[in-house]
Amino acid sequence: MRILEITNLKKTFHSNFLIKKYRILKGIDISVEAGEIYGFLGPNGAGKTTTIKCIMGLLFPDEGEILINGRPADTIDARRPIGFLPENPYFYDYLNANELLNFSASLYSIPAAAARERIDRLIQQVGLAGFERLKLRKFSKGMTQRLGMAQALIQDPDFLILDEPFSGLDPIGRKEFRDLILNLKEQGKTIFFSSHILQDMEMMVDRVGIIINGKISRQGKLSELIAGSTRCHEIVCSQISEKQLALIHPNFVRRDNQYIITLDNEAEINLVVESIIHNNGLVIAVNPVKKTLEDIFLNEIGEVQ
């Protein structure tokens, strides 16, 4: 079942006095299936936040259609099952965490007793226990991000839209957030999140959409995008001199008492291995180096530019 379906989404911003046009989204198509983690990847300024704001009704698209569970996204019923964490969230600094979450619960008409129970659990879950009564103006960026996650989860949503959820978090916080997101997936939730931190994305997503200059340049299962895509091969060897190795293949590095030769061409493997053996060297391993999301991402950027 499709939770989110975006078809031909276009958005243009105008400068003051409508003189200059900035085409931010140039016809975006995205589909997110129920129960998956969808990573929305793109460099800064590619249109990630603009797309998310269009989904959440904060911006009005020029063209295109956005459906959430088959309903147009600009209705409040469509937004009801969505938990949203904006990029660099801002909250009322005169409230404390407890009050803010109570306010969020009130917007979903959650009864007071149920809200109290849920807030207590969320405070624990996002790691803000002990800070419930602290005014938000005293919160650090990481704490604000955690609180943002808690308010996004207040109504136990089926679908989470997270705009740069790892921003402002330290490595421990990032790990906790990753675990939290994976745990939510296990509970059957669908998660759509944008990021430019490739490492986090690679560790979590089922499918990925790469947006560059307002267009989806690639979309699909991460495993399929990466599968069968060997970037190069590495030959690990020892018991051979650097002089001999330089004659066999110039592209190598020394690590401890071993050498690692990087081959871009698969056809060279046999020849290099035979040459090492011929020179009384020891071939320890021949490893294919798989493409990472980063390689795919950088490749896409390179192609577009």
């Binding site: 009704g57 904060l58 801002y90 009322y92």
Partner: peptide
């Protein structure tokens, strides 16, 4: 200005 409105309008509030 403080973008607190994002958290309100993204909820079932017209």
């Amino acid at each position: 200005e403080k973008k607190t409105i994002f958290n309100i309008l993204s909820k079932p509030v017209t």
